[in-house]
Write a protein that binds this DNA or RNA. Structure first.
Length: 906
RNA sequence: GGGUGGUUAGCUCAGUUGGUUUAGAGCGUCUGGUUUACACCCAGAAGGUCACAGGUUCGACUCCUGUACCACCCACCA
């Protein structure tokens, strides 16, 4: 016999091990079944699982388990991400703190640091693997991948080479976001802005007054920019030059007219620093102006700053202002200027724009063959969404996505950190080449995916480009690089199309079915996967994108370790409430794309539900034992032995199956969860089980329980699998491998359900009458009772109420009917005789019916109008029109009934 | 500056193309109750002019316009 309360801690690990050993997670490439694939967004291999991962795992596990039970070949590929910059900065920090080494890169060198990081990652991966298991995720561990696997590195290199050959990857001097702290470039998307209040200075610059929050960048400024339409500066011409006194002495300045200037802001003119400001850089490019570096890569001022050279920005700033004051060029200072400072999303270091030579991906060059045209990467990215090949849930994110693409610039893919896929470009250490008539060291000797060590022509060793690739370059390949057969990647005679063609997993499982992830990485990752995958494979990476929202604390704050009191840690919750409860609490009541709040009471509520299910099952088993039925027998449900309640339950189960299946197919997870919750608790436990205490039908009980376990399994896999052990039909597989129930498994009993509904309504009405009229034994009840389908008029003389177990028994004797025309039902502990005729309070009834009649007539007119609209018929899908017609027919029928009733009443 | 989402019961949120919902759930509150599983329980109750103002419609939580507040995203304001 089952214990009195469900103890998740005692069963979960065992169940998971059982699933794993059974091979249920493992997808079969050779199978003929329809594939259903999910690539798990790989958690960063830096630490611990958090709620974001937990919600991702819960959602995807539901998709996968449902698909598997529906008989699809379900593959869920797990993995981890090397997360270049994030990981490197974590490890460097760790070494700094634990070993007191201020600059680990310099002290340890490239090889040693990489070894240390790899060590750290290895341990972290173990932790993550076990945590993914704790959530019950049924992913295929035999196919686990890591973005830094040699096989994936091969894919990265192949794509790099292909892009280079297609002219999509180029090297150029461009302004980049430089992080002096991490000593690397940072992507535009990886920057966040922090508000800072700083002094805002205005200085005299020749005849102009210019304002700045960053005087330290102003040394080299020799261009002053004004708006061409600005009347204040009408007398100056574009390109006009003048001499003036500036920080380091006399300079010659040039006036530039350009529309980027906001005339309203400050004095309406500014000087520019092209080397350290993206806007200025663009402007300088447009007007072909000189650019000069002022600040070095460490964040210190260069010799151009004269006496300030070598100082840090913080140190130099007040001194420069002081000097300008001395020179009489200071005009004014505004103390509380709010200004936004760019900070690295990962390392939190202040970003200093710099011009550097970097590798870029050209997003505008139209060289990608797509649908028999040559498109740019941007155009392909737009096309796949526009054509609905990829659908985003919720669809409003499609707009956001398009907007992002519109503003997309060339993607800087090189990073100066060490942890990452190294740029597959090699140089000869010795040879030189002629560029623009000058002899320079050889820039590029070889580019390719195969490792390369010696320059054959001269016999000297080669060196690989020191830069590594942006982490999103490799994760952009994730949906398919994980499906490439690793053994093939050791063969360098194969090219990328060969690798794809010869990998059975790729052939079977790509494109993947659904990509589920947080909306916060729509740009970082989802967009990059679309870009990289369409280009590299000619296929879309996934058919659907399901975006979940952020999980917040009770107060709506972001979950972070800085608020330990409101922050929920899945690893603390699972032992306490169980993985099933956690999963439910994150799924039910949440809609895609919207943030939601999670707190412990909520999880507790679903723990109660899981326990309720457990006890209901216990009760069913007890009933069976009493009735002498083996719970794992094959069932024979005989129609003639069914009570009205049994029939109603069976009928309701059919509806439940239909609703749950449809809901899951359309990704309405919250709704389905709620439906299941309320069915199990309100309908099955509180109503049917209570009834069955009177006269139990163990066959129906077992049947219903089995069906509910099957339907609930994707949501709460552990408890359902555990219970399945007790009620599974002999010879049945594990629930995880089981089949999804079909709605037509057993006969429909819709009639019974309607009949029952009438009775339920009657009882509900009687209750309220009793409350209103204070009916007690022997007092007359007079009322009209509305039901879904009928208007029953009930007149009763006598009624009495008595307790019967948990329910109350209310008996009402009909006056005139004498049970002749009355339905007599025993239900929910209540015996009711319902007379079918008799009248009271016709006025109110008539009013209501008349109103309904009016509404229906209006409605009919509306629908008819719609259906006679040719444009509507022409444009609408066939099923929409059919639905409208159905609506029309239903309404006509309804109207007919209403009119009939009205006639009856008059 | 541009964009998106939100505003529904004390709290946290559902509500699928406008009509069987006289607006739902969970938690909380209140009143009863140890009754053939479950106090992680049962039976009931109270609690909402669906942010506000207009409009379209026979009919609006649902569609349109505007307003207010909140949140987020994007953008080159020196």
């Amino acid at each position: 016999m089952l214990p009195k309360a469900y103890d998740p801690k005692a069963v979960e690990d065992g169940i998971y091990a059982m699933w794993e050993q059974s091979g249920a997670f493992k997808a079969d490439t050779a199978s003929k079944k329809e594939p259903f694939t999910i690539s798990m967004p790989p958690p960063n291999a830096t630490g611990q699982l958090h709620l974001g991962h937990a919600v991702m795992l819960a959602l995807e596990d539901i998709f996968i388990r449902f698909a598997r039970m529906q008989g699809k070949e379900a593959l869920w590929v797990p993995g981890t991400d090397h997360a270049a910059i994030a990981t490197e900065s974590v490890v460097i920090k760790k070494i700094q703190q634990e070993e007191k080494i201020p600059d680990p890169r310099a002290k340890l060198g490239r090889e040693e640091l990489i070894r240390r990081i790899a060590d750290f990652v290895g341990k972290s991966q173990d932790t993550i693997r076990s945590q993914i298991r704790k959530m019950g995720a049924s992913c295929d561990w035999s196919r686990e991948r890591y973005t830094f696997d040699p096989a994936l590195n091969r894919c990265v290199n192949e794509v790099f080479v292909k892009m280079y050959k297609d002219g999509l990857i180029y090297r150029g001097h461009r302004i980049v976001n430089w992080d002096p702290k991490m000593q690397t470039t940072v992507a535009d998307d990886e920057i966040e802005y922090v508000e800072e209040t700083v002094p805002f200075y205005t200085f005299q610059y020749g005849p102009f007054q210019i304002s700045t929050a960053r005087p330290e960048t102003k040394f080299g400024d020799k261009y002053v920019v004004v708006h061409p339409d600005d009347k204040r500066y009408k007398q100056y011409k574009d390109g006009e030059q003048f001499e003036c006194e500036w920080i380091g002495g006399k300079i010659k300045a040039t006036i530039i007219k350009d529309k980027v200037i906001d005339m309203e802001f400050g004095t309406g003119c500014m000087t520019i620093t092209p080397w350290h400001d993206p806007v200025d850089f663009d402007l300088a490019e447009r007007h072909k102006l000189d650019k000069e570096q002022i600040i070095d890569f460490e964040g210190k001022l260069l010799p151009i700053a004269g006496e300030f050279a070598g100082m840090s920005i913080e140190e130099a700033r007040p001194k420069i202002v002081e000097k300008l004051k001395e020179k009489g060029l200071f005009v004014k200072i505004e103390e509380n200027y709010v200004h936004r400072v760019a900070v690295s999303y990962r390392g939190k270091g202040k970003i200093e724009p710099q011009i550097k030579e970097q590798w870029f991906i050209d997003v505008n060059k139209p060289v990608v063959p797509w649908k028999k045209k040559n498109m740019s990467l941007k155009e392909v990215m737009q096309d796949v969404i526009r054509s609905k090949e990829i659908e985003i849930i919720p669809d409003r994110f499609e707009k956001v996505y398009f907007h992002w693409i519109d503003n997309l610039r060339d993607w800087c893919i090189s990073r100066q950190i060490w942890w990452g896929h190294r740029v597959p470009v090699y140089y000869c250490k010795k040879c030189t080449e002629i560029v623009n008539g000058k002899e320079v060291p050889m820039r590029l000797l070889y580019i390719g995916s195969e490792p390369f060590e010696v320059h054959e022509a001269c016999g000297s060793p080669v060196t690989q480009d020191p830069d590594t690739l942006d982490t999103w370059f490799s994760s952009g390949l994730w949906t398919w690089s994980t499906l490439i057969d690793p053994a093939l990647t050791e063969d360098y005679s194969l090219d990328l199309p060969d690798l794809l063609k010869k990998s059975p997993d790729y052939q079977k499982f790509h494109p993947t079915t659904v990509m589920e992830t947080g909306y916060d990485i729509l740009f970082f990752w989802v967009a990059r996967m679309i870009l990289m995958t369409t280009y590299a494979t000619g296929q879309i990476p996934f058919k659907k994108v399901y975006l979940h929202g952020l999980i917040r604390t009770r107060d709506g704050a972001k979950m972070s370790k800085s608020h330990p009191e409101t922050c929920i840690d899945p690893l603390e919750i699972i032992p306490k409430y169980g993985a099933d409860a956690l999963r439910l609490s994150m799924i039910v009541g949440q809609s895609p794309g919207n943030d939601s709040r999670l707190f412990e009471e909520k999880i507790g509520g679903y723990r109660n539900f899981v326990n309720k299910l457990w006890n209901a099952s216990r009760f069913v088993l007890i009933q069976c034992e009493e009735a002498g039925l083996q719970p794992n027998e094959k069932l024979k449900i005989e129609n003639e032995k069914l009570s009205l309640a049994d029939k109603a339950l069976l009928s309701a189960l059919q509806d439940l199956i239909t609703d749950v299946t449809e809901g899951l197919e359309t990704y309405r997870l919250s709704e389905v969860g709620e439906r299941l919750y309320s069915f199990v608790w309100d309908y099955f436990c509180d109503w049917y089980l209570e009834l069955s205490k009177g006269e139990a039908n163990p066959q129906v009980l077992i049947h219903a329980l089995r069906t509910m376990l099957q339907l609930l399994h994707p949501y709460c896999p552990f408890v359902t699998e555990e219970l399945w052990k007790s009620v599974a039909p002999r010879g049945a597989t594990l629930l995880i491998k089981g089949v999804w129930p079909q709605a037509d498994d057993s006969p429909k009993n819709q009639g019974a359900f309607d009949q029952l509904q009438v009775v339920i309504d009657v009882i509900t009405a009687l209750r309220s009458i009793r409350a209103e009229q204070g009916v007690d034994q022997g007092k007359k009840i007079e009322a009209i009772i509305h039901t879904k389908e009928h208007v029953k008029v009930l007149e009763s003389q006598r009624g009495h109420i008595e307790r019967m177990g948990r329910l109350e028994k209310l008996t009402i004797d009909a006056k005139s009917a004498k049970h002749k025309n009355a339905a007599s039902v025993f239900l929910k502990g209540v015996e009711v005789h319902i007379p079918l005729e008799g009248m009271i309070d016709m006025k109110a009834e008539k009013q209501k019916l008349t109103k309904e009649q009016e509404n229906l007539r209006g409605f009919l007119a509306g629908v008819e109008k719609k259906l006679s609209n040719e444009q509507f018929i022409a444009n609408a899908a066939a099923e929409v029109v059919a639905k409208e017609k159905q609506k029309l027919a239903d309404a006509q029928e309804k109207l007919r009934k209403v009119e009939e009733r009205l006639k009856l009443l008059s």
